[in-house]
C-alpha cells in the first residue's frame, strides 16, 4: 500500500465542528453574488451561534402589538331565547376590508404615487398608488422607497460585490441603469414597498 497521496482517514477537523456547527459542502456561485451570499452566511452563523455583537446584556424588549385596523364584528340580530335560531349565525364571518389586506401597521404605512416607468416589469405602472411600510427591515430583493441624494426613488434593493448598497430598476428596455450608492452619496431607505393598487374608473 502506498503511503503517498489519496484520502487519509480521520484527518482534519471532525465533521460538524466548523463555524456553522454542522457539516458543510462546497458549491460554485456567481462572482457578482459573492458579497450577498457572504452576508447571508454571516447572518446565519450569528443566528446559529447566538453571537450578536449588538445585543449586550439586555433582554429583547417586548412590545405588545396593537391592532391598527378597526375590527368589525358581526352583530347577531337573531334573538337567542325565542324559537329557531337563524341557521346562518354560525357562518357569519367578518366582511373583507381592503386596507386589512394591504396594511400591516397603520402607524408606519404611507402611500405614494408612482410616476416613472423604471419599475414596470414588477407591475408598478405610472399612476399606481404604492404602499410603503417603514416598520419592515429591507432585505436584498425587496422593492423599496429610497432617498438618494435627497430625492425619492422606488427600486429593488441589492448589494454590490463590495457589499455597498445598490438599487436595481425593473425595466427590460435598458433605459434605466442600476444606481450604485457610493460612499459620498446621501442614501437612506424610507420604507419597504409592500403593495400597490390602482383604479380603472
Amino acid at each position: 500500500m502506498s503511503n503517498r497521496g489519496g484520502k487519509r482517514e480521520n484527518a482534519g477537523r471532525p465533521r460538524g465542528q466548523g463555524k456553522f456547527g454542522e457539516p458543510t459542502i462546497a458549491i460554485r456561485i456567481p462572482q457578482s453574488q459573492g458579497a450577498t451570499i457572504k452576508m447571508f452566511l454571516d447572518a446565519y452563523q450569528n443566528k446559529r451561534t447566538g453571537l450578536n455583537e449588538e445585543a449586550t446584556n439586555v433582554d429583547e424588549f417586548f412590545t405588545p402589538s396593537i391592532s391598527d385596523q378597526p375590527t368589525r364584528l358581526p352583530l347577531f340580530t337573531t334573538k337567542v331565547a325565542a324559537g329557531f335560531p337563524s341557521p346562518a349565525d354560525d357562518y357569519v364571518e367578518k366582511r373583507l376590508d381592503i386596507s386589512e389586506f394591504l396594511i400591516d401597521h397603520a402607524a408606519s404605512t404611507f402611500f405614494v404615487t408612482i410616476k416613472g416607468e423604471s419599475m414596470i416589469d414588477v407591475g408598478l405602472l405610472p399612476g399606481d398608488k404604492v404602499v410603503v411600510d417603514r416598520s419592515k427591515t429591507p432585505g436584498i430583493g425587496n422593492i423599496v422607497l429610497a432617498v438618494v441624494d435627497r430625492e425619492f426613488t422606488i427600486k429593488i434593493f441589492d448589494r454590490s460585490t463590495s457589499g455597498r448598497p445598490r438599487l436595481l430598476p425593473a425595466n427590460s428596455s435598458g433605459a434605466y441603469l442600476p444606481i450604485e450608492i457610493a460612499e459620498d452619496m446621501q442614501f437612506e431607505i424610507f420604507g419597504v414597498v409592500t403593495g400597490s393598487f390602482r383604479r380603472f374608473e
Binding site: 404611507f110 402611500f111 405614494v112 404615487t113 408612482i114 410616476k115 416613472g116 423604471s118 398608488k129 404604492v130 422607497l145 430625492e151 425619492f152 426613488t153 422606488i154
Partner: peptide
C-alpha cells in the same frame, strides 16, 4: 396633504 389626500401624495418620478 401627504397622508390625508389621495391626489396630494408624494410623487416618485425616478
Amino acid at each position: 396633504g401627504y397622508t390625508t389626500k389621495w391626489d396630494e401624495l408624494v410623487c416618485v418620478t425616478k
